[in-house]
Design a protein around this nucleic acid. Structure first.
Length: 421
DNA sequence: TCTGGGGTCCTAGGACCC
DNA sequence: TCTGGGGTCCTAGGACCC
């Protein structure tokens, strides 16, 4: 038996925890650079604010309807997510954190009533963190996700929890579920399914799995089996090591100067190095990429990338930064307005298991390890950006617009919530 | 003026191994 | 007429997730 616990409108709920006056009020959260809508409270959904809507197109509407607008605050969301996950994972022997606001639980073999048990999880999480969650329970992950979806639509007889097995007419419920509401099916596949005269989850369940495999591949075949109640997608209690790490951003304003881009990619390379070290991985190569805005039809477009391979796998920020600079020099062209850049570390290995080169003594890498550990410690103890590479801060013109950002209430001593009486 | 930032898996084809 | 059998690795493209 699987359960999926999922926070309701997670980013909007995080903002509401620290501004309870927004209870019952519409909230939207914007992407980096305040570009487009990436989260909406239930009230904002009722006001027909679309997911992904560019903010500049709905700004007036938000003001008119009194919608509270926030820039994304990932240090807040990440921290609250950790707290929620820690609480929920205590309720099962095995669990899998699936995304920032979702966690699967293995509820196999539990002798008590699972609906009551999960209702207890919901109320504890709400009481301890202020975040509302919903839980779907079923014999497969795909059905658990659907049960969760029915909860969100208000179709559960048990509040925030629904056990698929307690449905009186599960097939009738499936018949009401649109294809692209199924986990793993998006617009293209649902269109292709409709062309085959398959129009809802029940119809898909009744297809022949082998035939679906011929049309779509093994992924769709598994979905059909899962809809039938045969589990094909196991719980992954141990998250597999990352295969690649990316750090990229759109800029607050278009950049034309090499020096501004160089500061940006330096920052990205340093962040990618931090991620790499935290996950105990090392990069065999680094790709730097830059591009102009695909929405800008007035100016000439250009995008390019350059990859540098390392002699030895590394997670030393200085080496990553140097490679990023060299790559940028190769691809930078004068005369374009750049909108976005980033760093990709494409082929990661576990740190410390690398093949040494014939003449390597190991000593420089020991010094590098020490230096990186010290750097990470300083930034952990004294806050992000306490110590940075000089070339990161030679320009800040690329910095994101974040006009509506709330405080980092839980991760920064200088931004604690203050209450005036 | 203004449109996010991360990731994964599968498949097919080509090149190569013994 | 007849033309082995079993693999791996890499890449690009296409799909999906949050």
């Amino acid at each position: 038996m699987f359960a999926i616990a999922d926070a309701n409108n997670f980013y909007a709920s995080c903002e509401r925890v620290f501004q309870p006056k927004l209870e019952g009020k519409p909230i939207v959260v914007l992407s980096n650079n305040d570009g487009c809508v990436i989260a909406r409270s239930a009230e904002a959904k009722l006001l027909q604010v679309a997911m992904g809507a560019p903010y500049f197109k709905i700004e007036q509407y938000c003001k008119q309807e009194g919608i509270a607008v926030f820039s994304s605050n990932f240090s807040l969301y990440g921290d609250l997510s950790q707290r929620v996950m820690q609480i929920i994972s205590g309720y099962a022997q095995r669990s899998e954190i699936y995304s920032i606001d979702e966690i699967f639980l293995d509820l196999s073999g539990m002798p008590w009533d699972l609906t009551t048990y999960c209702q207890g999880i919901c109320s504890t999480v709400k009481q301890w963190t202020g975040i509302p969650i919903s839980i779907g329970i079923a014999p497969t992950k795909t059905l658990a996700k659907l049960a969760n979806r029915l909860v969100k639509k208000g179709l559960s007889a048990h509040g925030a929890v629904l056990d698929w097995r307690t449905l009186d007419a599960p097939d009738e419920a499936l018949a009401t579920i649109a294809l692209d509401d199924i986990w793993g099916i998006s617009r293209r596949w649902s269109e292709k399914l409709k062309a085959l005269d398959i129009h809802n989850a029940l119809a898909l369940k009744k297809t022949e799995p082998k035939r679906m495999r011929q049309y779509f591949g093994v992924v769709m075949e598994r979905i059909v089996f899962e809809l039938r109640g045969a589990s094909c997608i196991p719980l992954e209690a141990m998250p597999p090591a990352k295969k690649q790490i990316m750090t990229s951003r759109s800029f607050g304003e278009k950049l034309t100067e090499f020096a501004d881009l160089r500061a940006a990619v330096t920052y990205f390379a340093a962040r990618a190095g931090e991620k790499c070290r935290r996950q105990k991985l090392a990069a065999q190569a680094l790709t730097v990429f830059i591009q102009t805005s695909p929405f800008d039809s007035q100016h000439p477009q250009y995008g390019n990338s350059a990859t540098t391979e390392f002699e030895l796998p590394t997670h030393d920020s200085a080496i990553l930064i140097q490679a990023a600079h060299q790559g940028l020099e190769r691809i930078f062209r004068q005369g374009y307005s750049y909108q976005r850049a980033g760093i990709l570390l494409p082929d990661l290995l576990p740190a410390g298991v690398a093949q040494m080169s014939l003449f390597d003594t190991g000593e420089p890498s020991a010094r590098s390890e020490q230096l990186m550990a010290t750097l990470d410690n300083i930034n952990r103890l004294h806050g992000k950006k306490s110590i940075q590479y000089a070339s990161e801060i030679l320009s800040n013109r690329w910095h994101m617009r974040q006009q509506f950002k709330s405080q980092s209430y839980t991760t920064n001593w200088r931004e604690l919530l203050t209450i005036t009486i």
